[in-house]
Amino acid sequence: MADSLRDVVARHGLAPRKSLGQHFLLDEGVCGRIAALAGDLTGKHVLEVGPGPGGLTRALLARPLASLLACELDDRAIAALAEIGDPRLTVLHQDALKLDAVAALPAPRQIVANLPYNVGTPLLIAWLRHAAAFDRMTLMFQLEVAERICAAPDTEHYGRLAVLSQWTCECRVLMRLPPGAFTPPPRVYSAVVDLVPRAAQPEPALLAAMERLTAAAFGQRRKMLRGSLKSLGDAEGLLGGCGIASDRRAETLSIAEFDALARALLRRDA
């Protein structure tokens, strides 16, 4: 490209805003690596959230995707993205939290994004509710969030986000990036997480039951399950029916055990 990403930032006055959780990735080589991690994009309709000056946007458009929808809240970035001039690119000036990604994109759909730090987790949870609609999600988060998504049971980072993510998707960390890769450097490392939706996805009612279950179970992490699940009704009966000891804590349960509890909760409350 004629101009570097730093030239684009300077020309459009795109000083990163803390209020928007912005940390721009201006290394074109790293942007290209992230686009490659998304796999074969041939014929795919891709959503990117928080493109900023468009480094990852340009890297994605260098691949054979069918279309790219870039959702950007910062009005300063809209003009910068308009300079790209690729007919496959549509720039949407909108809050991504209010975007219906399934309705906005035809199939086959993928999401590839360096997510703004302040909205990464709520965006992911919203997309997980419709995981069946996406072929794959390749997303950058703060490293701590990435570790929470991929955590194993009975480890420091295992919690509600791990259960919801791993129940619906195969999850793995693909790349870690140091603070110095970004402008301005954040205080923490970042990581790219690969989420591939499982072939069998929960029905909406079962997903709602799992959200209720995990909210209660991890809402009071130090409590035994018989206490933390009390808000759901007969906790002892629910746990006993699944062969789970009531004195265990939420962080010790496997994804399969949470699945069994969610299904039992759904049957009981039907």
Rank of each mutant, 00 (worst) to 15 (best):
T90H: 01
T90R: 05
T90Q: 09
V91K: 03
H93P: 13
Q94M: 05
D95N: 10
K98A: 15
K98N: 14
L99K: 02
D100A: 07
A103W: 00
A103I: 00
L105Q: 08
P106T: 00
R109T: 00
R109H: 06
Q110T: 03
Q110W: 07
Q110C: 11
V112G: 10
V112D: 14
A113P: 07
P116N: 13
P116I: 08
N118L: 06
N118S: 01
V119F: 03
V119Y: 02
H130R: 15
A132F: 05
F134W: 09
F134G: 10
D135N: 14
R136T: 14
T138F: 02
L139P: 06
F141P: 04
L143N: 06
E144N: 02
V145W: 10
A146Y: 08
E147I: 04
R148G: 05
C150M: 13
C150E: 13
C150Q: 11
A151G: 04
T155Y: 01
E156D: 01
H157R: 04
G159E: 02
L161H: 02
V163T: 05
L164W: 09
Q166V: 09
Q166N: 12
V173Y: 06
L174W: 04
R176P: 09
R176L: 07
L177W: 06
P178Y: 12
P178R: 11
P178G: 12
P179E: 10
G180H: 15
A181D: 13
F182D: 11
P185H: 06
V188Q: 05
V188Y: 01
S190T: 06
V192E: 02
V192Y: 05
V193Y: 15
D194H: 12
V196T: 15
V196L: 13
P197E: 11
P197R: 07
P202L: 08
E203R: 13
P204K: 03
A205D: 08
L207I: 00
L207H: 11
L207P: 00
L207K: 05
L207E: 14
R212C: 09
R212S: 03
A215V: 04
A216D: 02
R221L: 01
R222M: 06
K223Y: 08
M224T: 07
G227N: 15
G227I: 12
G227D: 15
S228I: 10
